[in-house]
Design a protein around this nucleic acid. Sequence first.
DNA 1: GCAAAAGTGTTATCACTACACCCATGG
DNA 2: CCATGGGTGTAGTGATAACACTTTTGC
Lengths: 234, 234
Amino acid sequence: MPKYYKQTRLLIAVDCIIFGFDGTELKLLLVQRGLEPEKGKWSLIGSFIRESEDFENGAARILNELTGLEGVYLEQLHAFGRPDRDPLERTISVAYFALIDINQYERQINTDFHAEWFPIQKTPKLIFDHDQMVVMAKEKLRYKAAFHPILFELLPEKFTLPQLQSLYEGIFDTAFDKRNFSRKIQSTKLLVKQKDKDKESSKKGAYYYKLDKRRYAAKFHAFLNFIPNPDNLK
Amino acid sequence: MPKYYKQTRLLIAVDCIIFGFDGTELKLLLVQRGLEPEKGKWSLIGSFIRESEDFENGAARILNELTGLEGVYLEQLHAFGRPDRDPLERTISVAYFALIDINQYERQINTDFHAEWFPIQKTPKLIFDHDQMVVMAKEKLRYKAAFHPILFELLPEKFTLPQLQSLYEGIFDTAFDKRNFSRKIQSTKLLVKQKDKDKESSKKGAYYYKLDKRRYAAKFHAFLNFIPNPDNLK
DNA sequence: GCAAAAGTGTTATCACTACACCCATGG
DNA sequence: CCATGGGTGTAGTGATAACACTTTTGC
């Protein structure tokens, strides 16, 4: 029951840029589009918004439908509205980016989508303006990660310093000195050293750490300087 | 001609949070709403999006209609989509924030709107979720201003260091040491000292400065640390 | 016993903070 | 001549960056 007369009404979609980290590389979860136009091509996961659904709910819903996960880190990225972005009919897309622990992703949760992880450097061409969304999401992730302890969302509950460092190095595409990195991370007091070690990736083994959740919540919005040299960022 | 069947189509509006600085205080440009519901109440300036109009264009258009200005600094803030945010009919709002040189604002440009500047601390209650938009815009402005030389967009072409400092002090709601402030600002090499002085606000007069536009463009995306003590920001 | 990765400490440099006095002018 | 706001320098402190060797253990 339209109340504002003579105004254009448009389709609204929510699309999710889903990041995961496999211990070595940053990855993106993509699906093969199930409907025309561009059926069969690679795409971000998305859905039209429902009648009485918030964007945030919509994003959480499609994320859950695809991965089986709940309580995932989600943040609105940007609203995309170029009139011709969907050639079939004008559609607004509100894009969200999500950070998930890749190990918790359940491959079999939903066979409606053909979903696949792609290394961030080797993503296929995506439909519509989804490539632009991915570029923007990568920038925002970098930007945020430079000052906020956001990257822990990509890691499992227990992780090692070398893992954390290689995550940061992947995001910022640069190498850090491990002594300085360790000192800086420890100085945040966000980590709690565990008694056990990860023996997978080395003979000596690296100590596991967990997040101090209290401090993490408190410091999340603080400005911290995680990366050594600001000039590394354009 | 709808092509995606059985999907909901919604109204899309663009709303602008317009900041200005009068030399002393940060201000917000608000209008009295011209249509029902909530007619006559204070509101951000906004408009439904047109058939083949981008968000960015839409924001620039309404900004121009209201203020007469072109080439204004505009940045997308957030898309707001709570189903009940407009009680009459569900409407998505894509909010932009704008920084303008208040001196260039032309009061007479558009009498369709009753527009008024309000000190940021003394804004009236706004319709719908516009108060929330303002809060978010203030946060984002602070956040960006802490690392990017964005506040120059609020100043006239020629300005003095004391003016600049009081702008920063207003934004961060704190006082800075003028010697340290001056040194830090100068170290960015973004400013070019002029030969003439502003004699309005003091007997001795303060030198005017202009932005070095080349360096400004180059450094805009760089991370700089404009504010003295990071702990001042939550 | 050796290769491979983890862990750890020191020094030099730089950036930031705190702080106080002189200057120019209009009235 | 004095009140007002503008402009400048320095010393102490804390954070960052550069840098190399020892430890553990699986093979």
